[in-house]
């Protein structure tokens, strides 16, 4: 996983609330067995016409937003299906950071597994950054400092220590957990003693 430290980039404004993962990547693209290649179908149904032509008014079809690496959007982003294809599609398009007032839990979690930083800010600050994005001005995100800047104003955000550490260092969770093999085995042994049916009946 690519580490995330600092990012100064074009931010695309997407002022919709409750954007669901079906909208981010529709079902017809879930038949892939790869993690990559989904960027061209990111937001497919609102980005392309039926015949495959670009919808010219959709934000990611317009310069400079075709090169956006940050998305500024409405509350409850990523609700619905748990499909990790949603962060895969965003990442494959080039989005490394999403700024919103709130995210759906599973999507939020999935972002961290893919080197994407979801930033939660109060709605008023998101509204300010939405204007910055719409004015085609760059936004700068600094994970170590936990801050977002539009050049004149600085907004700070919260993030869990463990998630921050993994994201900044591009760490693989599974490798970390496998180092705890002894503790996992000990748990299984206590299960065998206290709740044998949990281990035996599957």
């Amino acid at each position: 996983m690519k580490p995330f430290t600092k990012l100064k980039a074009v931010a695309a404004p997407l002022p919709l609330i409750n954007v669901d993962t079906d909208m981010i990547i529709p079902k017809q693209f879930l038949t892939t067995i790869e993690r990559t290649g989904l960027g061209k179908n990111l937001f497919n149904d609102i980005r392309y016409q039926e015949d495959g032509q670009d919808k010219p008014d959709f934000v990611l079809n317009r310069a400079p937003y075709r090169a956006a690496e940050i998305l500024v959007t409405g509350e409850n982003f990523g609700c619905g299906s748990s499909r990790e294809h949603a962060p895969w599609a965003l990442l494959d398009f080039g989005i490394r950071c999403i700024i919103a007032a709130s995210f759906a839990d599973i999507f939020y979690n999935n972002c961290f597994k893919n080197g994407i930083l979801p930033v939660v800010l109060p709605q008023a600050e998101v509204d300010t950054l939405m204007k910055t994005a719409a004015a085609e001005q760059m936004i700068e995100v600094d994970l170590a400092a936990q801050s977002v800047s539009d050049g004149t104003r600085n907004f700070s955000f919260e993030i869990g220590e463990f998630r921050k550490h993994c994201l900044m260092n591009g760490l693989d969770d599974i490798g970390l957990t496998l180092e705890k093999e002894k503790a996992i085995t000990a748990h299984e042994q206590s299960l065998m003693a206290d709740q044998p049916w949990v281990l035996k009946s599957a």
């Binding site: 979690n109 597994k113 957990t177 705890k180 299984e188």
Partner: peptide, 21 residues
């Protein structure tokens, strides 16, 4: 019981655990 992403599916397959708050 809760839904997880594919990275977590891999984590559970490999370790039978998850990192959660």
């Amino acid at each position: 019981a809760f839904g997880i992403g594919t990275s977590e599916v891999e984590h559970v397959l490999a370790t039978q655990t998850l990192i959660q708050k």
